[in-house]
């Protein structure tokens, strides 16, 4: 009997090599191909059992796609595949220099609304985050490649920080835009 897809790993599921570098276009294409096979719409006339199975499989495929698409989720998934217990919620970096740079960024965010043009200021913070993010992703890829998993985990912790910062910037941009429109 064939191995249950619900227990396969996400890379296997999409027939992609286990690596931090994922061809996002290929991922998207294969995601669509799988959806065409298992999506509940294909079983609208089927038995309740088929509907249930289809729902479980589609949920699984959706989670797999979300995980592989997102740089932070993908990185922590790779670490988990190495058999290490890793939960994004419970880890935090202790790198003093990094934490300092994060504090500075937060301060900038706090004062952004007093700037002449808050949107321009936010754009520059956004750019700063993006650059740092690219650097951390690069760092993770290298550590992971070299089997230095403790280093790799440290990169993920930092990536997680940046993800939160990016969300906050987005919220601020939304706030500023709201104010401008009223």
């Amino acid at each position: 009997m064939s191995k249950d897809i619900l227990n396969s790993n996400f890379f296997e599921l999409f027939d992609l090599p286990v690596s931090y570098d994922v061809d996002l276009l290929q991922l998207q294409q294969r995601y669509m191909e799988l959806q065409k096979q298992v999506h509940p719409d294909k079983f609208a006339n089927g038995s309740d059992q088929e509907k249930r199975q289809s729902m479980q499989h589609t949920s699984w495929i959706n989670e797999a796609q979300t995980t592989l698409k997102d740089p932070v989720l993908r990185a922590s998934y790779l670490i988990k595949l190495k058999g290490m217990d890793f939960s994004l919620e419970n880890e935090t970096t202790m790198d003093a220099a990094f934490l300092m740079s994060q504090l500075e960024m937060r301060e900038k965010m706090e004062h952004v609304k007093q700037q002449d043009d808050p949107l321009v200021a936010l754009d520059s913070i956004e750019k700063e985050i993006k650059d740092a993010n690219d650097q951390m992703m690069q760092g993770f890829a290298e550590s992971y490649q070299a089997d230095k998993f403790d280093d790799a985990r440290e990169w993920i912790r930092k990536l997680q920080f940046l993800k939160k910062a990016k969300n906050e910037v987005n919220t601020l941009i939304a706030d500023v835009e709201d104010e401008l429109m009223h």
Binding site: S2, I5, D15, L34, Q37, V38, Q49, Q53
Partner: peptide, 20 residues
């Protein structure tokens, strides 16, 4: 049919990837 339905779902997925 429990096993059979699950097997079908799996084989659909596998075929889609191989077909690719």
């Amino acid at each position: 049919c429990d096993d059979y339905v699950a097997r079908r779902m799996n084989s659909n997925i596998k075929n889609a990837m191989q077909g690719h």
